[in-house]
Design a protein around this nucleic acid. Structure first.
Lengths: 242, 242
DNA sequence: TTAATTTACTTGTCTAAACAAGTGTGCTAT
DNA sequence: ATAGCACACTTGTTTAGACAAGTAAATTAA
């Protein structure tokens, strides 16, 4: 009854069962033929569901053998994909806070205007300090196009921008390009992040986020305390033929 | 004539045409019906090919409209997925060298033995310094299980381990889990990487790599010069439904 | 006993067809 | 002129079936 879409429901159901150890790590899932009977559907639909699990690193399919459940316990920190601070916070057990440092109007940085060819560079600028267990972790700077999101209430900035975009405004966020680098940061930023004098390096994550219709709408620069930064990724090998 | 597999050939062909600007950024690909006629195949096969392009961040599909070619020019550094130094080197125009610092037998670190539950922890240990344009970039430390790869010739270590694994030994590398952190490193490592006295931080990428049959076979620790490290990622938003 | 073969079961690829649903154009009735 | 509607075209989901190819166990032949 969740999504209207059968294969996503099946994928979710299988995912839940794996997470709850109903299908333990190292064992085989029921065969596609069995799943077809179990869910009363076609094999193509089952295969679409299993493709989801494969993409999420939950199973490995072996031709002639079956679908092996992978060890996902060690792998509980899925920052791969687009996951936000709020979502991360809720999925873990942590005391997290968000402090809005700046909420103002402005324009997109020139290099991003060039990269995205955006016509109307007016943005809402949000600068926020995130802490976990009273410890400063990251300063996020968001530039959100006013042509897509006219204004952002202070209360929204204190909680989740994404929830506002998706649930309130009905925006459909599709994809993002990210770069991760390590760079020296200003004294002020060092102060926010609680960095000592002998170290002014932060991990800088820059994201360009796009909607379903390929319109660019958000540029984010996140500066992380280097000693609290951890990026976890699951990657499949694509056989770069020729 | 490449892969025997139709949808991968079509995906490769479309990818090439996009890269060569035959389908320019911002335009629509021919519709699935048209592509079906063009390639003389079924719509399901065309859709499988287009799914590949979607996963690789080359197109964005819009229901009712078509497949938009995304701007991939800015995005030439696909370190997402499992791409190796050698492959990266060949795809770019750079003068890269690899210097083998250590090639010896040993055992897997204890924490990795615990994580992977591996029975036979004997490994070949390879430590290599990579430079680009005479500049030290990264020190790679590979632990390769002897139960999978009995020995590694010096010449292989000087070039590409992956090519040896895949082309010579016929191993099928399937997936890897990676973590990226920033950590202080030893004086010796600072010396290798040419880091100044006021900065002993490096970007540390740890990978656990697995074969098609889910056997773990390689653990890698890469320590990068922070000022030369850049990780680029394309991420799609998965709707984490409840 | 050992080696080769058969057989059953598994996933991978491909086809043809139908219907749902979103987009955009152009026509029509107001 | 404008709002609403019909229609053509697009991608999304689902089904049923066929054959290829890898795995593993049982069977058969040496």
């Amino acid at each position: 009854m969740d999504t209207q879409v059968k294969y996503l429901n099946i994928a979710q159901d299988l995912t839940d069962k794996i997470k709850h150890d109903l299908y333990p790590t190292g064992t085989l899932l029921p065969s596609e033929a069995d799943l077809t009977k179990l869910y009363g559907t076609s094999r193509a639909t089952i295969r679409k569901a299993l493709t989801e699990l494969t993409n999420n690193g939950l199973i490995q399919k072996i031709k002639g053998k079956g679908s092996v459940v992978l060890n996902t316990a060690r792998f509980t920190f899925p920052i791969s994909g687009i996951t936000t601070f709020s979502e991360l916070n809720e999925s873990q057990q942590m005391h997290a806070t968000t402090k809005v440092l700046t909420l103002a109007e402005g324009t997109l940085p020139q290099d991003i205007i060039d990269q995205t060819q955006v016509k109307d560079p007016r943005v809402t600028f949000v600068q926020r300090l995130r802490t976990i267990n009273e410890e400063p972790i990251v300063v996020d700077e968001d530039y959100i196009l006013k042509s897509v999101v006219p204004n952002i209430p202070e209360k929204v900035a204190e909680h989740s921008l994404y929830r506002y975009f998706e649930e309130t405004l009905g925006l459909e966020i599709a994809y993002a390009t990210k770069t991760i680098t390590v760079e020296p940061v200003s004294d002020k930023m060092c102060h926010y992040l609680g960095l000592g004098a002998n170290n002014n390096l932060a991990v800088v994550v820059r994201s360009l986020t796009y909607l379903n219709d390929t319109t660019f709408f958000q540029y984010t620069v996140s500066r992380h305390r280097p000693d609290r930064f951890k990026f976890v990724d699951f990657a499949r090998r694509h056989h770069h033929g020729q």
